[in-house]
Design a binder for these strands. Structure first.
Length: 720
RNA sequence: GGUCGCAUAGCUCAGUUGGCUAGAGCGUUACAUUGACAUUGUAAAGGUCCCAGGUUCAAGUCCUGGUGCGACCACCA
């Protein structure tokens, strides 16, 4: 044996020997108890980051349960990551002076497909580098045909059970990405914008968005506000930049009399709050901003007999970007004497795109929504009755709160990289012949006729599903795609392990959709890990330049060292600061493990063995007692999801008791050839190797095989 | 504004149902070693366990209040 453990030279070899021996494959026909984890599918197109290395929790569970004689399946996969990937691809196009608008739908999709497939292998190779015992033969991609078929089925079922509806409503729209987002994907930031006080007939109103006022449909005040009482219900003609607008004054308790002037203009088409008000009072929705983020005055310019002055103005504003139009209008407002004052120090919070940071425009669009109420109710029941257990426990409350606050889920995305929605709009809808579901029908195959009215003219919805819609189906979809035996044996899965930050976006939705389709919870346990931060506790991000590449760590110190550093001395579910020093510390531990083995191996060859020396029997008994206690603590910790404690237990024992104390004490006896001492030390050592194997698979395997031979794999031994 | 979490050694953090003479990693100091390992060992320094009350034979641990951080959610023109 080398005097030092050399992970770089042997890790890859060991990993392929596991693969060759079929150790990571699950047998769906096995009579053993099943234990199954579905890997949260990483983005097929991106390199792994340190957060992915946290899946080491999954690996250690898989290995541990395998060593407890379970039939284990850890199923890998990859996510197409719709918006993320299309965004990256568009940046790549831009570098070549192109844009997505230069290609038709099929070509663009194919280009992104090729782009992703080229990169996909990288991510998989990195999972192997981490030593993950994944069953590669069962790997799945969210755009695989069989997965898409299952996703389509789910959509159809939701449609048939009336949990799916199409609605014209305000969606969060990023004009730069060219797609809408769900509420979860909007990032609010504090921003300073001028607040304009405008003369508005007999009133003064305050607004940061004067550009939308052309399409105001009402004025609202608080019903208790005495100042405006006499105007209630009256319709006024308000002079504006393009002539007079008719507007009714309505009262609503939600209007804050203390804000601004206490009177508010209602713009249902471009403000979520106003949209709700509009709905409540039956106000028309009249958009003035396009999905390109430009002003649309065609509604005005199409009118007859427009005074010249207004026509010139409207033409000036038309098709301008929002910010530019606002500047132009403020000038004209000044000229007309309609601008009362400007508060330059007004700060408010605005929604921005989580991808590129541009301002999110609330725009009225027709989209697919999932009615979540019945799904949420079932999911909540499952969690509350303990059919799904959450670890650490405090996240259960969190999950319940999340479920309580779930609003209908917008699943339409206006991008091509994803699963195209299998819904069709019948042309006859417009002339009233196809009334069913507002003229929409769902078809899994390319349809020949409208399934509602038999008409032959229809168009497929150009949109694709929100990536989370397919992710929400991942546990049952992957197992169904793997085959009936897999589904029957391994579903519901044992544990869903992921970061607590996607409890809402993913875990809650998996429970909702999973139960809806299978009538079973998709998993029995949820284990949540924390977020990795840098050594100062700061979030890692490219802009801060504090990102650590896991592959670099593996290259320098070995996969075991990195894995250990992520588990050792941390609280499950808590955020953990990452430091290279900690990896070095764990590298030292792997080396210690190696060298204990080396020492025992060297002494195994000693020639002058004396079987009769038993004067150390008392110490040997003490040692065995300590081992028993250690193992008991280890198993209790492992079964209770206290992995850090389990690792700490073995670390402490093996290094500071076994090596520092017992080996030193028994060294002389050992070197004098006392075989009983040797055998006991070896036995205790092997037991510790087994306990460590789930955490540090490579070094434990390497030493194990020094003693047991190349064909004996440590994972095939049993912990109890 | 709402919810949750966190405050323990110089730094980063563990501390299981109350039993602590409070631990680990890294760092610091002294010493040892051509010996399995310097990626080592032995020893040492270093803590009012945020503050104030309370429960208890016993509180780092449980309860109440306060202070200071952090995260998530909601977002008022």
């Amino acid at each position: 044996m080398e005097p030092k453990f050399q992970p770089k030279e042997i890790e890859d070899l060991i990993y392929s020997s596991w693969q060759d021996a079929g150790l990571m494959k699950a047998d769906p026909n096995s009579s053993k108890k099943p234990f199954c984890i579905i890997l949260p599918p990483p983005n097929a197109n991106a390199d792994l980051h340190l957060g992915h290395a946290m899946y080491v929790y999954e690996d250690l569970m898989i290995r541990y349960y395998r060593m407890l004689n379970y039939e284990t399946l850890w199923l890998p996969g990859a996510d197409h990551a719709g918006i993320e990937t299309q965004y990256v691809f568009e940046k790549y196009l831009k570098k070549q002076g192109k844009s997505r608008f230069d290609y038709d739908r099929q070509t663009l999709f194919q280009m992104i497909w090729d782009f992703v497939m080229e990169n996909r292998g990288k991510m998989e190779g990195q999972l192997k580098k981490l030593g993950f015992a994944l069953d590669w033969e069962k790997k799945k991609f969210t755009l695989d045909e069989d997965i898409v078929a299952i996703v389509y089925d789910t959509f159809k079922k939701l449609f048939e059970e009336k949990l799916l509806y199409r609605d014209y409503r305000l969606v969060n729209y990023c004009t730069r990405c060219g797609t809408s987002f769900s509420d979860l994907e909007v990032v609010y930031i504090e921003k300073k914008d001028p607040l304009y006080y405008l003369k508005y007939g007999p009133f003064t109103i305050a607004t940061v968005r004067p550009e939308t006022k052309f399409r105001d449909t009402a004025l609202a005040v608080n019903p208790k506000d005495r100042r405006y009482k006499k105007w209630l219900g009256k319709t006024l003609e308000i002079p504006g930049l393009l002539g007079e607008i008719k507007m009714t004054v309505i009262a609503d308790p939600e209007v804050d009399p203390k804000f601004g002037t206490g009177i508010m203009k209602v713009t249902p088409a471009h403000d979520p709050h106003d949209f709700e008000l509009g709905k409540k009072y039956g106000l028309p929705v009249t958009p003035i901003i396009t999905t390109q983020g430009r002003m649309d005055f065609s509604w005005f310019l199409g009118q007859k007999n427009i005074p010249e002055k207004y026509r010139i103005r409207a033409e000036k504003y038309h098709n301008q970007k929002i910010a530019k139009a606002r500047t132009l209008m403020v000038e004209d407002l000044k000229a007309d004497g309609l601008l009362v004052k400007v508060d330059e120090n007004y700060t408010h919070r605005i929604g921005t795109c989580y991808r590129d940071g541009s301002v999110i425009e609330p725009l009225p669009l027709e989209q697919w929504f999932i009615k979540v109420k019945p799904l949420v109710a079932e999911a909540k029941k499952i969690v509350q009755t303990g059919k799904i257990k959450i670890h650490p426990k405090r996240f259960q409350k969190h999950l319940i709160t999340i479920l309580d606050n779930f609003i209908d889920w917008n699943i339409s995305r206006q991008i091509v990289w994803g699963i195209r929605i299998p819904a069709y709009k019948c042309q006859k809808m417009s002339n009233g012949k196809c009334q069913m579901s507002k003229g929409w029908f769902v078809s899994l195959e390319k349809p020949k006729v409208c399934s509602n009215c038999g008409a032959k003219e229809f168009e497929q919805d150009p949109d694709t599903f929100d990536t989370w819609f397919s992710s929400a189906q991942w546990p049952f979809a992957t197992l169904m795609a793997a085959g009936k035996k897999y589904y029957d044996n391994f579903y519901p899965t044992s544990v869903m392990e992921t970061g607590y930050d996607i409890l809402r976006a993913w875990v809650a939705r998996m429970i909702m959709i999973g139960y809806f389709i299978t009538k079973k919870p998709p998993f029995k346990n949820v284990f949540l890990h924390g977020l990795i931060r840098d050594r100062q506790g700061q979030k890692m991000s490219k802009s801060k330049g504090n990102v650590v590449n896991p592959m670099e760590m593996i290259d320098k110190y070995g996969a075991d060292a990195l894995r250990g550093a992520l588990i050792f001395n941390v609280k499950e579910g808590g955020d953990l600061p990452f430091s290279e020093e900690k990896v070095i510390g764990m590298r030292n531990f792997t080396n210690k493990i190696w060298n204990i083995g080396r020492f025992l191996e060297l002494n195994s060859k000693a020639e002058n063995r004396n079987l009769k020396q038993v004067q150390n029997s008392e110490q040997l008994n003490e040692l065995k007692k300590e081992l028993t206690a250690e193992k008991k603590n280890y198993i209790r910790a492992m079964n209770g999801y206290k992995f850090s404690q389990a690792l700490g237990e073995v670390y402490e024992f093996l290094w500071h008791r076994f090596a520092d104390y017992y080996i030193e004490e028994l060294k002389d006896a050992l070197q004098n050839g006392n075989i009983e001492v040797l055998d006991t030390l070896k036995e205790v050592y092997f037991e510790n190797l087994k306990m460590l194997h789930p955490f540090l698979p490579f070094v434990t395997e390497a030493v194990w095989q020094v003693f047991k031979g190349k064909n004996d794999f440590i994972i095939n031994s049993k912990i109890v």
